[in-house]
C-alpha cells in the first residue's frame, strides 16, 4: 500500500473534467443547530464473492480501499456502504457465508461508525432477510452534526420498489425536519429513471422524489450503476458512486450492460470510492473521487 496521505492529497477526479464536484444548490439561512464541517466516505458495490475476468483482483480490491481509507491522516466521521456488499447467489448458506466474510473484512476499517445499505444482490432474493441478520435494518435515519441522513431501501422488494409503507415513513420523517436542516438520502438504485432498459431505476422512485421535493435541502448518494453519475431532479442532486469490483458502461452506450473489461496495463481503472466533505451550514458537499491503486 502507499504511504499515509491526507484527505486533501487525494487525486481529485470527477466526471466534470477532473475537478472536485461540489453539490449544494440551495444556500439558505444557517441551520438552527450549530454545525461544523465534517466528511464521510462512500464505498459501493463490492460484490464480495464475484469471480471472473472483469476483476482478477476481486479478492484484494476491497482490502485496498479499506487500507487507503485507514491511511488517511484524519479518519472520516463515518463510512457508508451503498449496497451490493455481496454478489448474488441462489444458495442461502453461501449468501450468509459471503456476508460473514465481507463483514469481517470491513471490520478492519479504523472508523468510529460504519453504515450499511443493501443492494439487490444482497437482498432481493430473500427480501433482505440475510442482510438484516448481518448488517441490521435496511431503512433507517440518523443525524450527524446538523445533517439528517435517510437510508432508503429500494432493493429488498425484488421489483426494485420502495413500497408504500416505506414511502409513508419517509414522508413522515421528512415532515419532522426543519426546512433549514440539510437532508442526505442514501440508497442503492437511482431514484430517477436513469436508464430503465438496464434496470437503472426505482419503480416507485418518482413518488420518493415527490416527497423529497417538499424539503429544500436534499442531496442523494447512491450506487448500483458502477460509475460516477451526477443528475438533477429539480433542486435535488443525485450522485452515484464507482464500484469496487468492476465498472459498467455509460447508460445506453453499449448494446448490453456488460462489465468494462479489465485492463492489465491499467488495473483497477474505473474502480474507486469517494470522500464527501459536508458543510451543514450551506448544505454544500464537496465530492472527491479516489481511484484504487495498483
Amino acid at each position: 500500500m502507499g504511504p499515509t496521505i491526507s484527505r486533501r492529497d487525494f487525486a481529485r477526479l470527477s466526471a466534470f473534467g477532473g475537478a472536485v464536484f461540489a453539490s449544494g444548490l440551495w444556500r439558505g439561512a444557517e441551520a438552527a443547530t450549530p454545525a461544523e464541517e465534517f466528511y464521510f466516505v462512500q464505498l459501493s458495490d463490492l460484490h464480495w464473492g464475484f469471480e471472473g475476468p472483469p476483476n482478477p483482483e476481486a479478492k484484494t480490491t476491497l482490502r485496498r480501499a479499506i487500507a487507503a481509507v485507514n491511511a488517511m491522516a484524519s479518519p472520516p466521521d463515518f463510512v457508508v456502504f451503498t449496497g451490493d456488499l455481496t454478489h448474488t447467489t441462489d444458495d442461502d448458506a453461501e449468501r450468509r457465508r459471503r456476508m460473514a466474510e465481507v463483514k469481517a473484512i470491513i471490520a478492519d476499517l479504523n472508523v468510529k461508525d460504519v453504515k450499511f445499505l443493501a443492494g439487490e444482490h444482497d437482498a432481493s432474493l430473500d427480501w433482505g432477510a440475510a442482510f438484516k441478520e448481518y448488517f441490521g435494518a435496511t431503512h433507517y435515519t440518523f443525524d450527524h452534526k446538523g445533517v439528517h441522513f435517510i437510508a432508503l431501501d429500494n432493493v429488498s422488494d425484488p421489483g426494485g420498489k420502495i413500497g408504500q409503507e416505506q414511502l409513508d415513513w419517509l414522508a413522515a420523517d421528512l415532515a419532522r425536519q426543519p426546512k433549514a436542516k440539510p437532508v442526505v438520502v442514501l440508497t442503492h438504485r437511482p431514484l430517477f429513471d436513469l436508464y430503465p432498459q438496464w434496470d437503472w431505476a426505482t419503480r416507485d422512485g418518482a413518488a420518493a422524489i415527490e416527497i423529497l421535493l417538499t424539503h429544500p435541502k436534499v442531496t442523494v448518494f447512491y450506487g448500483h450503476i458502477h460509475q460516477e453519475n451526477h443528475f438533477m431532479t429539480g433542486p435535488i442532486a443525485h450522485h452515484s458512486a464507482k464500484s469496487l469490483i468492476f465498472a459498467l458502461p455509460a447508460p445506453g452506450s453499449t448494446p448490453k450492460r456488460t462489465p468494462v473489461a479489465w485492463d492489465p496495463a491499467e488495473p483497477f481503472r474505473g474502480l474507486g470510492y469517494r470522500s464527501i466533505e459536508a458543510d451543514p451550514k450551506t448544505a454544500a458537499y464537496e465530492l472527491t473521487e479516489v481511484g484504487i491503486k495498483a
Binding site: 447467489t89 432474493l125 432493493v155 421489483g159 419503480r203
Partner: peptide, 12 residues
C-alpha cells in the same frame, strides 16, 4: 427485460 430480480443471471 426481467425487472424482478431473479438471481445471478438476472441482468442478462
Amino acid at each position: 427485460h426481467c425487472d424482478n430480480f431473479c438471481g445471478s443471471g438476472h441482468e442478462t
